[in-house]
Simulated assay, not measured.
Amino acid sequence: MRRPTIHDIARRAGVAKSTVSFALNGQPGVSESTRRRILGVADELGWRPSSVARSLSSAQAGAVGLVLACETADPALMRLVAGFESVFGPREVGLLLQFAPRTELAVYHSWWHQRRVDGVLVVDVRVSDPRIALLGELGLPAVTLGRSALPSVSLDAETAMRTAVGHLARLGHRRIARIGRSPELVHTAEHTAAFLDAARAMAMESAVCVTAEPDAAEAVRRLLAARPRPTALVCDTDVMALGALGVAAQLGIRVPGELSVLAGEDSPLCLLPHPALTAVRVDLHSYGAAAAETLRCLLAGDRPQDRTFGPPCLVERGSTGPPVS
């Protein structure tokens, strides 16, 4: 089916194409009765503005980009994407998503040269992140989800770790450990520092951090083989926490009787095991929306302030309890 054009509207309404253009774009020079008649004809024909034509006239792409250095998207990322869409979707701004585990920088170069996007959102910010310098050099507007030299919206790591460690301290735990994501991530570095600070403030007997890479299950086994072993684990993600429950079951360690497990993010996955996982909840949909709103303001010519999103809250379930005395 051929899409209706302003020529079709002009012919049906009996006016010039220029008059139709003025009416549809809300410009002066058209009487109110003529404008209403033209809008009525446009509605009858099912006419919709062309995003291509609009981008050509405004020198804007009408899209923002997200490049992922992975091959698949996990549920947490999809909640962030839903938050992005809640801001850009109603404004008819498209979200261009590309998986590029080995060619991130090339994608940014291509998008900039081809004017494919007006700006980008950057996730999983790394400690020494070449994307930050490149985007600054290109002048491509960007907002990072995590602290960087670019405008950013970051999670409240201090409150998250104080909430998790405080919960375990109140239960009586004094030997705790944390399993984190890649140490290259800004997110991991901030949460590691916050975890150790909270443990010192609450006079923990011991508090250690290990990385889940390359094998989260093996990291859990090493922790549980230590003597004395930790009585509680804080896992950065829901998937890591589920893995910790699995390893504990294989080793015959009861949860929460002999080991408490706490997830650093909450999701429906936390409700699947028995016992269900205690978790620190962050509204990832709203976090994504906050980052998207910051990028929208940047594209509108404003200078958005860096923002810390939160605070997180504790959702207590069956996987945490007092340690065995």
Rank of each mutant, 00 (worst) to 15 (best):
R2N: 10
H7Q: 13
D8F: 04
A10W: 03
A10V: 03
R12H: 06
K17W: 06
V20G: 06
L24D: 03
G26C: 04
G26L: 05
P28F: 01
P28Q: 07
V30P: 00
V30Y: 05
S31Y: 02
I38S: 05
I38Q: 06
I38K: 09
A42E: 06
L45R: 13
W47V: 00
R48Q: 15
S51A: 12
R54G: 04
R54D: 02
A59D: 13
Q60T: 15
A61D: 10
G65L: 12
G65K: 13
L66A: 15
C70G: 11
T72M: 12
D74S: 04
D74W: 01
D74K: 07
L77N: 07
L77I: 13
G83W: 01
F84G: 11
E85Q: 07
S86F: 01
S86I: 03
V87F: 00
V87L: 02
P90A: 03
R91N: 12
V93A: 11
Q98E: 14
P101E: 09
W111F: 02
G119M: 13
L121D: 11
V122G: 10
V123F: 10
V125K: 10
S128Q: 15
P130L: 03
I132N: 08
G136P: 02
E137G: 04
L138T: 08
G139Y: 01
L140I: 05
L140G: 09
A142R: 14
V143L: 13
G146Q: 11
S148K: 13
L150S: 13
L150I: 06
L150W: 12
A157M: 06
T163Y: 07
R170C: 08
G172K: 09
R175I: 00
R175A: 08
I179L: 15
T188M: 11
A189F: 01
E190N: 14
H191M: 14
A194Q: 11
A199D: 00
V210K: 12
V210S: 08
T211R: 06
P214L: 00
A216S: 07
E218D: 11
V220M: 01
L224P: 12
A225K: 12
A226Y: 07
R227P: 02
R229D: 06
P230D: 11
P230H: 10
T231L: 02
C235Y: 00
C235E: 00
C235M: 03
T237D: 10
D238V: 06
V239K: 09
M240P: 04
L242A: 12
G243C: 06
L245P: 08
V247R: 06
Q250V: 06
R254W: 01
E258A: 03
G264V: 00
S267G: 13
L269M: 05
L272D: 03
L272T: 14
L272G: 08
P273G: 09
P275C: 04
L277R: 09
T278M: 05
Y287R: 15
A289M: 02
A290V: 08
A291T: 14
C297H: 12
C297R: 14
L298C: 05
L299N: 07
A300G: 13
Q305M: 12
F309T: 10
P311D: 01
L314T: 10
V315T: 14
S319R: 13
P322W: 02
V324A: 14
S325K: 04
